[in-house]
Computed example of a mutant assay.
Amino acid sequence: MPLRVTFVAAARSAPLLAERFEDDRPLDQAGWDEVQRVAGDLLPLAAAELRYCSPTPRSRATGEALGYAPLVQLALRDCDMGRWRGLTLGEAMAREPEAVDAWLADPRATPHDGESLLAFISRVGGWLDTRPAEDGGRIVAVAEPAVIRAALVYALKAPPSTYWNIDVRPLSMSTVTGRAGRWNLRLDGGSPQSSRS
Protein backbone atom coordinates (compact mmCIF):
# COMPACT_ATOMS: atom_id res chain seq x y z
CA MET A 1 0.00 0.00 0.00
CA PRO A 2 1.56 3.33 -1.02
CA LEU A 3 2.16 6.18 1.36
CA ARG A 4 -0.10 9.20 0.87
CA VAL A 5 1.26 12.63 1.79
CA THR A 6 -1.18 15.54 1.59
CA PHE A 7 0.30 19.01 1.79
CA VAL A 8 -1.98 21.82 2.96
CA ALA A 9 -0.78 25.32 2.16
CA ALA A 10 -0.67 27.65 5.15
CA ALA A 11 -3.22 30.44 5.28
CA ARG A 12 -2.06 33.80 4.06
CA SER A 13 -0.68 36.42 6.44
CA ALA A 14 -0.38 39.22 3.88
CA PRO A 15 -1.58 40.19 0.40
CA LEU A 16 0.29 38.35 -2.38
CA LEU A 17 2.37 41.37 -3.42
CA ALA A 18 3.41 41.97 0.19
CA GLU A 19 4.69 38.40 0.75
CA ARG A 20 8.25 38.37 2.01
CA PHE A 21 11.07 35.85 1.73
CA GLU A 22 11.09 33.64 4.85
CA ASP A 23 8.07 35.47 6.22
CA ASP A 24 7.76 34.98 9.99
CA ARG A 25 4.59 36.99 10.45
CA PRO A 26 1.68 35.26 12.21
CA LEU A 27 -1.74 34.85 10.65
CA ASP A 28 -3.65 38.11 10.41
CA GLN A 29 -7.41 38.33 10.88
CA ALA A 30 -8.05 37.65 7.18
CA GLY A 31 -5.96 34.49 7.45
CA TRP A 32 -7.88 33.29 10.51
CA ASP A 33 -11.16 33.99 8.73
CA GLU A 34 -9.94 32.03 5.71
CA VAL A 35 -9.07 29.02 7.89
CA GLN A 36 -12.52 29.11 9.53
CA ARG A 37 -14.24 29.16 6.11
CA VAL A 38 -12.48 25.98 4.90
CA ALA A 39 -12.03 24.14 8.20
CA GLY A 40 -14.96 21.81 7.54
CA ASP A 41 -13.41 20.61 4.27
CA LEU A 42 -9.89 20.18 5.67
CA LEU A 43 -10.76 18.77 9.10
CA PRO A 44 -10.99 15.13 7.86
CA LEU A 45 -7.24 15.24 7.19
CA ALA A 46 -6.74 15.31 10.98
CA ALA A 47 -7.33 11.53 10.85
CA ALA A 48 -3.92 11.08 9.17
CA GLU A 49 -1.57 8.82 11.10
CA LEU A 50 1.18 11.46 11.04
CA ARG A 51 0.67 15.25 11.06
CA TYR A 52 3.47 17.73 10.44
CA CYS A 53 4.02 21.41 9.73
CA SER A 54 6.65 23.91 8.68
CA PRO A 55 8.20 25.89 11.54
CA THR A 56 6.68 29.22 10.43
CA PRO A 57 4.11 30.85 12.72
CA ARG A 58 1.40 30.77 10.05
CA SER A 59 1.96 27.08 9.22
CA ARG A 60 1.83 26.13 12.89
CA ALA A 61 -1.26 28.28 13.49
CA THR A 62 -3.01 26.88 10.40
CA GLY A 63 -2.33 23.30 11.52
CA GLU A 64 -3.52 23.98 15.05
CA ALA A 65 -6.66 25.78 13.86
CA LEU A 66 -7.51 22.79 11.67
CA GLY A 67 -7.17 20.41 14.63
CA TYR A 68 -4.09 18.60 13.30
CA ALA A 69 -1.82 19.13 16.36
CA PRO A 70 1.13 18.96 13.94
CA LEU A 71 4.76 18.24 14.79
CA VAL A 72 7.17 20.91 13.54
CA GLN A 73 9.62 19.67 10.92
CA LEU A 74 12.71 21.83 10.37
CA ALA A 75 13.28 20.21 6.97
CA LEU A 76 10.00 21.83 5.86
CA ARG A 77 11.27 25.35 6.51
CA ASP A 78 11.22 27.86 3.68
CA CYS A 79 14.23 28.40 1.44
CA ASP A 80 17.10 30.18 3.24
CA MET A 81 17.17 33.52 1.46
CA GLY A 82 20.29 34.86 3.15
CA ARG A 83 20.46 38.64 3.09
CA TRP A 84 17.12 38.85 1.23
CA ARG A 85 15.29 37.41 4.23
CA GLY A 86 12.30 39.63 5.07
CA LEU A 87 12.30 41.40 1.70
CA THR A 88 9.63 41.20 -0.99
CA LEU A 89 10.77 40.13 -4.46
CA GLY A 90 10.29 43.73 -5.60
CA GLU A 91 12.50 45.06 -2.80
CA ALA A 92 15.25 42.53 -3.60
CA MET A 93 14.98 43.44 -7.29
CA ALA A 94 15.29 47.15 -6.51
CA ARG A 95 18.45 46.55 -4.44
CA GLU A 96 20.16 43.86 -6.51
CA PRO A 97 18.55 43.43 -9.95
CA GLU A 98 21.39 41.40 -11.51
CA ALA A 99 21.55 39.10 -8.48
CA VAL A 100 17.80 38.45 -8.56
CA ASP A 101 17.97 37.75 -12.30
CA ALA A 102 20.80 35.26 -11.70
CA TRP A 103 18.86 33.57 -8.91
CA LEU A 104 15.73 33.25 -11.07
CA ALA A 105 17.70 31.89 -14.04
CA ASP A 106 20.08 29.43 -12.35
CA PRO A 107 18.78 26.88 -9.80
CA ARG A 108 22.31 26.52 -8.39
CA ALA A 109 22.82 30.25 -7.84
CA THR A 110 23.12 31.71 -4.33
CA PRO A 111 23.63 35.45 -4.92
CA HIS A 112 21.82 36.16 -1.65
CA ASP A 113 24.34 34.02 0.29
CA GLY A 114 21.57 31.63 1.25
CA GLU A 115 20.30 28.34 -0.14
CA SER A 116 20.07 27.59 -3.86
CA LEU A 117 16.73 26.56 -5.35
CA LEU A 118 18.22 23.16 -6.17
CA ALA A 119 19.40 22.65 -2.57
CA PHE A 120 15.97 23.72 -1.29
CA ILE A 121 14.16 21.24 -3.56
CA SER A 122 16.59 18.48 -2.52
CA ARG A 123 16.12 19.22 1.19
CA VAL A 124 12.32 19.08 0.97
CA GLY A 125 12.53 15.97 -1.24
CA GLY A 126 14.83 14.32 1.28
CA TRP A 127 12.20 14.88 3.95
CA LEU A 128 9.54 13.36 1.70
CA ASP A 129 11.70 10.31 0.94
CA THR A 130 12.34 9.59 4.62
CA ARG A 131 8.68 9.37 5.69
CA PRO A 132 7.91 5.99 7.26
CA ALA A 133 6.11 3.80 4.75
CA GLU A 134 6.35 0.23 6.08
CA ASP A 135 2.60 -0.37 6.06
CA GLY A 136 1.43 2.53 3.92
CA GLY A 137 -0.47 5.25 5.63
CA ARG A 138 -1.58 8.85 5.47
CA ILE A 139 0.41 11.93 6.31
CA VAL A 140 -0.69 15.56 6.34
CA ALA A 141 1.82 18.41 6.31
CA VAL A 142 0.91 22.10 6.59
CA ALA A 143 3.61 24.09 4.85
CA GLU A 144 4.42 27.33 3.12
CA PRO A 145 3.49 27.43 -0.58
CA ALA A 146 7.20 27.53 -1.52
CA VAL A 147 7.82 24.28 0.36
CA ILE A 148 4.91 22.58 -1.40
CA ARG A 149 6.15 23.77 -4.79
CA ALA A 150 9.57 22.29 -3.99
CA ALA A 151 7.99 18.98 -2.90
CA LEU A 152 5.97 18.74 -6.11
CA VAL A 153 9.00 19.45 -8.32
CA TYR A 154 10.92 16.76 -6.46
CA ALA A 155 8.11 14.21 -6.53
CA LEU A 156 7.58 14.66 -10.27
CA LYS A 157 11.33 14.62 -11.00
CA ALA A 158 10.70 17.81 -12.95
CA PRO A 159 13.42 20.28 -13.91
CA PRO A 160 14.05 22.86 -11.16
CA SER A 161 12.74 25.62 -13.44
CA THR A 162 9.28 24.02 -13.10
CA TYR A 163 9.21 25.48 -9.58
CA TRP A 164 8.39 28.90 -11.03
CA ASN A 165 5.37 27.49 -12.90
CA ILE A 166 3.53 25.96 -9.95
CA ASP A 167 0.91 28.08 -8.22
CA VAL A 168 0.04 26.95 -4.70
CA ARG A 169 -2.88 28.88 -3.24
CA PRO A 170 -3.38 29.38 0.51
CA LEU A 171 -5.22 26.45 2.12
CA SER A 172 -5.08 24.38 -1.06
CA MET A 173 -4.23 20.67 -0.96
CA SER A 174 -1.65 18.75 -2.99
CA THR A 175 -1.25 14.99 -2.57
CA VAL A 176 1.58 12.71 -3.60
CA THR A 177 1.45 8.94 -3.27
CA GLY A 178 4.16 6.31 -3.43
CA ARG A 179 7.42 5.79 -1.61
CA ALA A 180 10.99 7.08 -1.60
CA GLY A 181 12.13 7.82 -5.12
CA ARG A 182 8.78 6.85 -6.68
CA TRP A 183 6.14 9.52 -6.18
CA ASN A 184 2.98 10.28 -8.12
CA LEU A 185 0.89 13.42 -8.01
CA ARG A 186 -2.69 12.61 -7.12
CA LEU A 187 -5.43 14.93 -8.33
CA ASP A 188 -8.72 14.51 -6.50
CA GLY A 189 -11.81 16.23 -7.80
CA GLY A 190 -13.62 16.11 -4.49
CA SER A 191 -13.18 17.12 -0.90
CA PRO A 192 -10.51 15.75 1.49
CA GLN A 193 -13.08 13.13 2.52
CA SER A 194 -12.97 11.59 -0.96
CA SER A 195 -9.17 11.34 -0.80
CA ARG A 196 -9.34 9.03 2.22
CA SER A 197 -10.17 5.98 0.13
Score class of each variant (00 low, 15 high):
residue 56 T to Q: 07
residue 148 I to R: 04
residue 30 A to D: 15
residue 69 A to E: 10
residue 15 P to H: 13
residue 150 A to N: 13
residue 162 T to P: 03
residue 160 P to F: 01
residue 187 L to Q: 11
residue 102 A to S: 15
residue 30 A to I: 06
residue 21 F to R: 02
residue 45 L to D: 01
residue 44 P to I: 13
residue 23 D to C: 12
residue 53 C to I: 12
residue 106 D to Q: 02
residue 138 R to G: 00
residue 57 P to Q: 07
residue 196 R to F: 12
residue 115 E to P: 09
residue 40 G to L: 08
residue 65 A to M: 12
residue 87 L to H: 11
residue 105 A to V: 00
residue 111 P to F: 11
residue 168 V to C: 00
residue 141 A to M: 05
residue 82 G to Q: 15
residue 150 A to L: 02
residue 82 G to A: 10
residue 23 D to H: 08
residue 9 A to L: 02
residue 73 Q to R: 06
residue 120 F to A: 00
residue 147 V to S: 07
residue 177 T to R: 14
residue 117 L to W: 07
residue 118 L to N: 02
residue 76 L to Y: 08
residue 187 L to K: 07
residue 4 R to M: 12
residue 93 M to H: 06
residue 162 T to H: 14
residue 171 L to W: 01
residue 78 D to K: 03
residue 174 S to A: 14
residue 62 T to A: 01
residue 101 D to R: 09
residue 63 G to N: 07
residue 74 L to F: 08
residue 100 V to K: 11
residue 175 T to F: 07
residue 44 P to R: 13
residue 62 T to W: 00
residue 18 A to M: 13
residue 36 Q to K: 04
residue 48 A to K: 06
residue 194 S to Y: 05
residue 176 V to I: 15
residue 30 A to Q: 12
residue 196 R to Y: 08
residue 142 V to T: 13
residue 139 I to V: 15
residue 88 T to G: 12
residue 99 A to D: 13
residue 139 I to T: 13
residue 40 G to V: 15
residue 165 N to A: 15
residue 86 G to I: 14
residue 27 L to K: 01
residue 74 L to S: 12
residue 130 T to V: 08
residue 189 G to C: 03
residue 89 L to K: 07
residue 69 A to G: 09
residue 77 R to N: 10
residue 56 T to S: 14
residue 188 D to Q: 04
residue 68 Y to L: 14
residue 138 R to E: 08
